[in-house]
Design a protein around this nucleic acid. Structure first.
Lengths: 198, 198
DNA sequence: TCCTTAGTTGAACGATCGCTCACAAAAATA
DNA sequence: TATTTTTGTGAGCGATCGTTCAACTAAGGA
């Protein structure tokens, strides 16, 4: 009974993700959101209750789709986990002519003092990345690609920090060559020989 | 001739730094700034012209005093550059009961799409840190504390990324033990044996 | 002492913020 | 068809935003 919802919630959340990633929570006004999603405030508020509710929904969707998707494709599934870790890094900054690089998770972590309701979602996303690293490292070790006495837990934590740092540098406009240098160093630091992998 | 300025510019900039570090540029309203600095808008605008002008002045002061000060104390001056690198990291998160941890540089880098005037200052600060790492690494290599074939440029870039990543994780509320784990891993990754250094 | 100059004060401006709600439009039910 | 229920629309609300400025205060020079 009643009228059908004319818009797709996943599409709207995808638009909101992009907007929030570019401008941050405080930097994205409701007028911006209306323009990005094509919705009027009434519809937005009926479903998401508030700007904050929309943001939390967008962050959850980002975790479920973007973050976990990238973790799966680069860290869990590849037959060569070492190459997967590398591509997890490079795909974060080799975004072509993307006008708003960076990661909603990283940006929100930094903004989370002004948007405390988002802290839990941030933590969940970071954990997903870290355990993805741990999985890839464990598999790489089992395959003999990395040293048998590699400390997986420590290395996963360090790769997470390095990944977040890369996303900060991306936002600061660091040139691609330097980001590649950092990636190469990161791979070497877990004991990958990376000959001819580029 | 005329009246004397009743307030100290350095003190006001220090208050502004703290406020901007905690809340970000967009999250700090002029009413907040008035309360934090004790100044009325007329005085603020006479000297700094705009909120943006105050922010740029605060970021410059942060670079000149906080960032370069930390670089000097931990990276340039210590007789043991390896221990200095370690303390540069740990002092970033062992801030006691500081209610607003993190780094204005990191936070501004992330926010720099909504505050583009700050991008230049961010870049300058990041460069100061990176060249500080390079200096410490070069000295450590010369002292025989690190391997002679350590790639200083690459390691400095990677330490910068790791440092920025740590400051993201600090903001996300990561427990101290994990931050220490990451620091230990970072030291090991440049070839430090770090026996009994805590 | 009076005038000029520099600095302080805080009320108030227009713009924009997040948000509400009365109304219209479409689908399901009677 | 008439009624009920859900969804869409957008004007406009009070609050707060960054900013301005006229009145006021203190210091130096004549």
């Amino acid at each position: 009974m009643g009228r059908k919802q004319l818009w797709d919630q996943a599409e709207v959340l995808a638009s909101a993700m992009r907007l929030f990633r570019r401008r941050g929570y405080l930097g994205a006004s409701l007028r911006d959101i209306e323009e990005a999603t094509g919705l009027h405030p009434g519809s937005l508020y009926r479903v998401f209750e508030s700007k904050d509710g929309l943001f939390r929904a967008a962050l959850d969707a980002y975790n479920d789709q973007v973050v976990r998707g990238r973790v799966r494709v680069h860290l869990l599934e590849p037959a060569d986990p070492v190459a997967g870790i590398r591509s997890f890094f490079t795909s974060a900054f080799e975004t072509g002519l993307d006008p708003d690089p960076g990661c909603l998770l990283t940006n929100t972590a930094v903004e989370s003092f002004t948007v405390p309701q988002a802290a839990a979602g941030v933590r969940r996303g970071l954990e997903a990345i870290e355990s993805g690293f741990a999985d890839a490292l464990t598999r790489a070790r089992a395959l003999g690609l990395l040293s048998a006495d590699l400390d997986v837990e420590e290395s996963a934590a360090r790769l997470l920090a390095l990944y977040q740092g890369l996303l900060v540098l991306v936002r600061a406009g660091t040139p691609l060559t330097k980001l590649h240098t950092i990636t190469d160093g990161a791979m070497a630091s877990i004991g990958s020989e990376k000959e001819g992998q580029r």
